[in-house]
């Protein structure tokens, strides 16, 4: 039995601003439950934009976005999907908007309605998974770039998502944080869509590789077996 489709995108067009240059020109993408997909492409090719469209942070000019089998057309539609799908932002400072680590990591669960104690439990668990025990009361602004990235991922994991979208997770990361990231992501039972041009990172974590070029997605040259419809 084929696993259900988590993300299904058909014929997506997205343009930034009024100058008319389309970033995404007819993107088709299908990601099924349990898959681990890597997406690379040149700078400014629209990879981050695609992730933002999937999360409903930008609405496309044309095309359809289906998450968990349901079409998503407006802000309302995306709300429940966001509770199951986590996005790791490229700049951790954008994602960590609370003064201390525990505030940030507990924030998601609190908002999911889990109650203070359950949220705190979930936060501490997520920090432990990331190897960040003892970081709860640290002030976010004082952390290193690597620590911030790991905390940011903890904020996603605390919500116990079934899917993770990662936007250039290894940029500005030192080797040990990168190793930690690989280690954690290998073990966590989620569907993954990783945007990155760190080829060894993608090698370690993904089964299929895609490329975003000229506004469209295709298989990456060395990736065997297309499970992606074009």
């Amino acid at each position: 039995m084929t696993p259900p489709c988590i993300i299904q995108i058909k014929d997506l067009y997205f343009t930034y601003g009024q100058d008319g240059a389309s970033t995404l020109k007819g993107v088709n993408l299908s990601v099924r439950q349990g898959e681990r997909v890597g997406l690379s492409g040149a700078n400014a090719s629209g990879k981050s934009t695609l992730l933002h469209v999937i999360m409903g942070l930008r609405l496309p000019q044309a095309g359809t976005v289906e998450l968990y089998g349901k079409p998503r057309r407006n802000e309302e539609d995306f709300r429940d999907a966001r509770m199951r799908m986590g996005l790791l932002f490229q700049d951790s400072d954008d994602q960590l908007f609370c003064p201390t680590v525990l505030d940030d990591v507990a924030f998601g669960p609190l908002h999911l309605g889990w109650g203070k104690d359950a949220a705190r439990e979930a936060a501490l668990e997520a920090l432990a998974i990331m190897g960040l025990q003892g970081y709860e009361h640290r002030v976010t602004s004082r952390l290193s770039a690597g620590e911030k990235k790991l905390v940011a991922l903890a904020t996603n994991l605390a919500m116990k998502p079934d899917t993770l979208l990662l936007d250039e997770p290894t940029s500005f990361l030192d080797d040990s944080s990168r190793e930690r990231l690989i280690h954690v992501l290998r073990d966590v039972p989620v569907t993954l869509l990783i945007v990155s041009h760190d080829q060894t990172f993608l090698d370690a974590l993904t089964d299929h590789r895609l490329v975003l070029r000229d506004g469209r997605i295709s298989d990456a040259p060395t990736s065997p077996g297309a499970k992606v419809e074009l």
Partner: peptide
């Protein structure tokens, strides 16, 4: 510009604005 990105991040976690969870 950062504010707009933070607003996006807040949308992803379902809320705008920040609560204090810490009990130190």
């Amino acid at each position: 510009e950062r504010a707009d990105r933070v607003a996006d991040a807040m949308k992803c976690r379902g809320h705008h604005g920040v609560y204090a969870a810490t009990e130190t």
